[in-house]
Amino acid sequence: MSNLKSLNSRKTVGTRNIMFEIKRDWMLYMLLILPMAFFLVFKYVPMYGVTIAFKDFNLFQGILKSPWVGWDVFKEVFSMPEFYRALRNTAMLNLLDLIVGFPAPIILAILLNEIRMNWFKRTAQTILYLPYFLSWIIIGGIVTQLLAPQSGLVNIFFKSLGMLPVPFLTEKWHWLLTYCLVGVWQSSGWGTIIYLAAITSINHELYDAAEVDGAGRLRRIWHITLPGIKNTIIILLILNLGRILTLTFDRPYIIGNSYVIEFSDVLSTFVYRVGLQSMRYSLATAVGLFQSAVGMIFLLVTNFIANKCGEEGIW
């Protein structure tokens, strides 16, 4: 009986503390209403649309009145050869981006941190950040003007030297290299922001002590800078692995063409071509749900591995 009374008294005290905090900071809680409403309306309520993947969706009947078909849509998707080609290409392009593009902002951030001339550092950062603010339509136009087989400036220069034109955009292996390098050029500068912020949080006395002990610049980078941003690298790596089957539509669609469709057809373009253009919304939703489920599995597995290895994951 006494234990029950003590438990009730603790609950009462806890409730009073919560009410006291709400009364004290009510303005802060009011500020949370708008972002919470945003996520509720635009993130959680639309999740009901996932049920389209399990229905024979009819645009005129709507989601509620469309008949249920269970897993038939997924069976149809998994029986399509084009789906497996798009799945392979999505995983391959994301993996190449991870191998080629993930280390690039780390290296750039370390190089920028080592620059001592502030004016040059600010100028370099501005130049590196600029491509991120260009749309892929503009970038696609730049790539075409530079790398087109006959009219591109690069191939015109090659031909003026008596060399054969390089099929950067019309041969699948050359296109693969072009795709990766253009992605690095577009995103690596912006990615340095997070790493530069992590580097600035490192105690500068460690660098001074290492310099007194005779450590050179490379030694300081290897033993101080990289361990100092290790947690940031791991978290971003986990997030990137969670998006291993999620590839934006614009980049492969703008740079790709019919000559390299064997590599450029990814899940997002597959959904656009087979699902949306043909008005097969159930199929498009099923592929999107499959991507989200696989991405969640990768996220959980990589975070679990990071925690087991003694590193700090996302949670």
Rank of each mutant, 00 (worst) to 15 (best):
R280D: 13
F270P: 00
T285R: 01
R243H: 13
I229W: 05
I238D: 04
M279R: 06
G275K: 09
L283R: 09
G228N: 09
V271T: 13
F249A: 09
R280G: 06
N240W: 00
V260Q: 02
S282P: 10
G256K: 03
L245P: 00
I234A: 02
A284W: 06
V287M: 05
N257F: 15
D265Q: 13
I229C: 02
P252Q: 02
I261M: 14
T232A: 03
G288H: 12
F249M: 10
T246V: 13
L267Y: 04
G256Y: 10
Y281S: 01
L289E: 01
N240G: 15
I254H: 01
R280T: 04
R280H: 11
I235E: 03
T248I: 09
F249Y: 14
L267C: 13
N257Y: 15
A284Y: 04
R280Q: 14
S282C: 10
N257V: 07
V266G: 07
T269Y: 01
R280K: 14
L283P: 00
L267S: 12
F290E: 02
I233Y: 10
L276M: 14
Q277M: 13
V287S: 04
S268I: 11
S258P: 00
F270Y: 15
L267I: 06
M279F: 13
N240H: 05
V274D: 05
T269M: 07
S268M: 07
I235N: 07
D250K: 01
G275D: 07
V274K: 05
E262G: 15
V266E: 04
L247V: 08
L239C: 06
T285F: 03
T246I: 10
G256Q: 03
T248L: 06
E262S: 15
A286S: 14
I255R: 05
L236A: 03
A284H: 05
F263D: 07
G275E: 12
I254D: 03
S278N: 13
G256L: 10
I234P: 06
D250E: 14
Q277G: 06
S282V: 05
T285P: 00
A284T: 04
L245A: 04
V266F: 01
F249E: 02
L289N: 07
D250Q: 10
S268A: 15
L245V: 14
F290S: 09
G228K: 03
D250W: 01
T232L: 11
V271G: 00
V271L: 14
S264G: 04
F290G: 05
T269R: 01
S258C: 07
L237C: 13
N240T: 04
F263E: 07
Y272P: 00
I235W: 01
R280A: 11
L236Q: 06
N257W: 12
L239K: 05
F270W: 13
I234G: 03
I254G: 02
V266R: 01
I234W: 05
I234L: 09
V260C: 08
T248K: 13
T269G: 07
R251K: 15
